[in-house]
Simulated assay, not measured.
Amino acid sequence: MDRLTATLAVLDYAAVAVFGATGALAAARRKHDIVTFGFFAAITGVGGGTLRDLLIGAPVFWVGKPGYVIVCLGAAAAVWIVGPRRFRGHTLTWLDAIGMAAYAVVGALKATSLGVPPFSAVVMGVLTATFGGVIRDVLAHEPSVLLQRELYVTPALVGAATFVILGLVGTPTTPAGIAGFVAALSLRSGAILWKWSLPGFGGPVDPENDGS
C-alpha cells in the first residue's frame, strides 16, 4: 500500500466514523430505536462518498469493503451506549464540521487519484462533504444544513480547493490534505461561533422569515 492509498484509507474511515456518529445523534434526537440508529449512521456516513463514486464512474467504495458500513454501525452503537445526554450543546454541529472538513479532502483526493480534472475534483470534494449531511437532515426532519445562513458549502469548497491547488503546485499529499482540512474546519468554526455568512440576494434576510 503506497502512501497515497494509506492516507486516503485513514481519512476515509475517520470521516465515515464521524459522519456516522452525527447520523446516530440525529436519530437520538428523535428517540428512534437501535436499528434506525444504524440506518441513519450508515446513510450519513457513506452517502456523500456513494454519490461521488457514482458520478466519477468508480466502484462504490463501501460495496467491496463492508468495513465502512461496519464503522458506521460501530459509531451508532457507541452513541446508543454512551447516551445522547453525554453529548452536550452543539456536539452534532461540531462533529458534522469535522466530518465535513475531512470529507472535503477525501472526496477531492479520491477524484484526483483517479485522474479527474482539478475543477471537477473540487466539486467532488464538496459533494462528498455535504451530501451525507443533507440526507441525514431530510430523514430526521431537521432543517437542512444547506438552508442555514451560516457558511457550510463554502468551507467545503475552500478545503477541497486548497487541497487540489496545493497538489497542483507540487505539495505532497499529506501536507496538502492537512492544509485543506484545517482551512475547511477553520472557516466552518468561524461560521458556528460567530455566525459568518455570505451576503444574501437582495440584502439582509428578515430573521422571522429565514428558513434556517
Rank of each mutant, 00 (worst) to 15 (best):
H90Q: 09
M124L: 12
G132S: 15
L92M: 06
A111K: 09
V123Y: 09
S120M: 12
A121L: 10
V126E: 03
W94M: 00
L127F: 15
V126A: 07
T91A: 14
V122Y: 14
Y103R: 07
V105M: 06
V106K: 07
A108Y: 04
T112F: 08
R85L: 02
A129Q: 08
A111Q: 10
R88V: 04
A104Y: 11
A129G: 08
A101T: 02
R88A: 04
D96T: 00
G107K: 11
S120H: 14
G125D: 02
A102S: 12
A108D: 01
I98F: 13
M100N: 03
P117M: 10
V105T: 02
L95G: 08
L114T: 08
G132L: 06
Y103E: 13
T93D: 04
T112D: 03
A104W: 04
S113V: 01
F119W: 13
S120T: 06
G107Q: 10
G115A: 07
P117E: 10
V116T: 14
T91W: 08
A121F: 14
F87I: 06
R86T: 00
L109A: 09
A101G: 15
V106Q: 09
G133I: 00
T93N: 02
A108F: 02
P118Q: 05
V122G: 15
T93L: 12
F131V: 00
G125H: 11
V122R: 12
L92H: 06
L95A: 03
P117C: 11
T91L: 03
G107Y: 10
V122T: 14
G107R: 05
V105H: 13
R88N: 04
H90N: 10
G132E: 04
A102R: 06
T130V: 09
G115I: 01
Y103I: 01
L114W: 14
K110D: 03
A104R: 05
R88W: 04
G125A: 11
L114V: 13
A102V: 09
A111W: 12
V106M: 09
T93F: 05
S120A: 15
T91I: 00
R85A: 05
G125I: 00
V105Y: 14
A97Y: 02
F87M: 07
V126K: 09
F131K: 01
P118T: 08
D96V: 00
V123Q: 11
V123H: 13
A97F: 08
D96C: 04
G125R: 13
G115Q: 09
L127S: 14
A104P: 09
A121S: 15
G115E: 12
S120Y: 13
P118C: 07
V116S: 15
V116I: 15
F119A: 15
V116A: 12
W94R: 08
T112K: 14
A121H: 15
R88T: 01
M100E: 05
A111E: 00
L92W: 08
L114K: 10
